[in-house]
């Protein structure tokens, strides 16, 4: 077990020191699922596969779960709960304290012109503050450039689908087809399906599908949910897409 490069670890297991990346200049970066016990002990806190990137001097535990724990600079999809004097209260996952979204944290927003969001509307936002002692904070604008960069209210028809956190992470990968092994979106939008739709993926296990056509929204959402729940491989995804397209016609 210790001999493989990607061992499966349980909480509290010892990490073989040969696997811990040691880079001459870059400091070691710990990702999700690991904790550092001073002075030099690193222990996993969840069960999953240990992934190490010696070039980047980083390591993390790859695992799947369904409860989102806010982390800084994650992209999330939130539901507006209510509006306060200066903030919107946004729900990132059920039964957790709401995150705050300042009224002015939108592109081009001023006191007089700001988006009016009703309870229940959706926003695509970035987590700016994630601290265990405070409620999380999100924003829909980049604080440095003042640009929205695709963030903001999710409007013009669409629907949110719940997926597992691991699946959302795969969808968010830069190469979700090669690394995440997810092809459904390309297939549905490409030659196979010729559907036109837009998506927004939240790290909190939510996928928003927007389209003029309601049928398209449902088909894409179902394809994603089924791929996640039934753990479909690339070949099975192709089969599923063919089946769904046939059903639609």
């Amino acid at each position: 077990m210790a001999s493989t490069t990607r061992p499966t670890l349980l909480p509290g297991d010892e990490i073989p020191s040969s696997l811990i990346p040691s880079h001459p200049t870059k400091p070691l970066r710990l990702g999700p699922g690991l904790r550092h016990l001073p002075p030099s002990q690193i222990l996993p806190t969840v069960s999953g596969q240990l992934i190490t990137l010696p070039q980047k001097s980083s390591m993390w535990i790859e695992y799947n779960s369904s409860r989102y724990i806010p982390t800084q600079s994650d992209l999330v999809i939130g539901t507006i709960l209510r509006s306060g004097p200066d903030f919107y209260y946004v729900l990132l996952s059920p039964f957790t304290p709401p995150a705050t979204l300042p009224h002015l944290a939108f592109e081009g927003a001023t006191k007089k012109t700001r988006p009016q969001l009703n309870p229940g509307s959706l926003v695509y936002a970035r987590v700016t503050l994630a601290n265990k002692h405070m409620d999380p904070e999100v924003e829909c604008v980049s604080a440095t450039t003042g640009k929205a960069d695709g963030l903001g209210p999710l409007t013009n028809g669409g629907m949110v689908f719940d997926v597992s956190l691991g699946f959302a992470r795969r969808l968010l990968m830069a190469k979700s087809k090669e690394e995440g092994k997810i092809e459904v979106l390309e297939l549905l939008g490409g030659e196979e399906g010729k559907l036109s739709f837009e998506t927004a993926v939240g790290r909190n296990g939510k996928v928003w599908i927007g389209s003029e056509d309601i049928k398209t929204v449902v088909i894409v959402g179902r394809a994603l949910k089924e791929t996640d729940e039934k753990k479909l491989g690339v070949e099975a995804q192709r089969k599923l897409v063919r089946k769904l397209i046939k059903e639609m016609k």
Binding site: R6, T8, L10, S47, G48, Q49, E62, Y63, N64, G166
Partner: peptide, 17 residues
């Protein structure tokens, strides 16, 4: 027993790796 149970769960979750 605990370890083998969890190993099969992780392997199923990360089938795409």
């Amino acid at each position: 027993f605990l370890r083998s149970t969890m190993e099969s769960k992780v392997a199923a979750d990360l089938y795409w790796k």
